[in-house]
Simulated assay, not measured.
Amino acid sequence: MITYIAFLRGVNVSGRHKIQMAGLKELLSKQKLEDVKTYIQSGNVVFRSELENSKELENLIAKAIQNHFNFDVPVIVMTISKLKELLDRNPFKTDDEHLQKQNYFVLLKEVPSVEAVEKLSKETFKTEDFLVAIDCIFLKCTAGYGKAKLNNNLIERKLKVEATTRNYRTMSKMLELSV
């Protein structure tokens, strides 16, 4: 059994794509995912599975949500080691709790084109620093994510890939729940 973390994009945001976490937990348990745990209402899930393919798990979860709730939700699944790696690679990593609140991870569902990455990497934003990696955009929002120009929707548009954003606290908590 492998422990995985799933991040759902856009659930329970602005009254759209409402999913109660208890209902999600029950639904995923019926998909033969074990030890399912959720964290807050924004679609963060830890589970165990015998399947060894993250993409297969993403499709399984997305299809189950589509069939049960009747809407599409992009899903990104990763292993504990992948989550640890992202936290370790964060170029804005700090022990300062105040500064940690400025750190965000834009998780990319697919690898964007080299051209799109190069184009985005050349852009600048007044209150944001960022680094585009193959699987994640590491984002530091000095004025807070709510005021960020470089938000999830802009990133999806610029890179032409689905993505979901999580703050440092959520990423750390998911790691904690997974071990």
Rank of each mutant, 00 (worst) to 15 (best):
M1G: 03
N151S: 03
K84T: 02
F125V: 14
S113A: 11
F69Q: 07
V106C: 04
A22K: 09
V73I: 14
K25I: 08
F125A: 08
L86T: 03
E26Q: 13
V77G: 10
V111Y: 12
L139K: 08
S121Y: 11
D95E: 06
M171N: 02
K82L: 14
A133P: 05
V106A: 08
S121V: 12
E118T: 10
Y4S: 10
L107W: 05
V132H: 13
K30W: 05
F105G: 10
M174A: 04
D96Q: 13
S121K: 13
K30V: 08
N152Y: 00
K126I: 15
V11T: 05
K160I: 11
F130P: 02
A143K: 11
L131E: 15
V114T: 11
N152T: 01
D129G: 07
L24M: 11
V75W: 09
L99T: 02
K93V: 14
V73E: 04
A22L: 07
A163R: 02
T3N: 09
Q31P: 10
V179Q: 06
G43H: 03
N103E: 11
E52N: 11
F47T: 02
E52A: 13
G15Q: 08
L108C: 06
I19H: 00
V161T: 03
I80F: 11
F130T: 05
K37Q: 09
K122S: 12
K158L: 14
L177V: 08
A62E: 15
T38Q: 01
P74F: 12
I134R: 09
K109V: 07
E156Q: 12
N12S: 05
N151H: 03
E97I: 15
E110H: 10
S178Y: 00
I2M: 09
V132K: 06
K37T: 07
G43A: 06
I40M: 04
F92M: 15
P74H: 12
F105R: 08
M1E: 00
T164K: 00
V114A: 14
T164Q: 05
E58A: 06
R48Y: 11
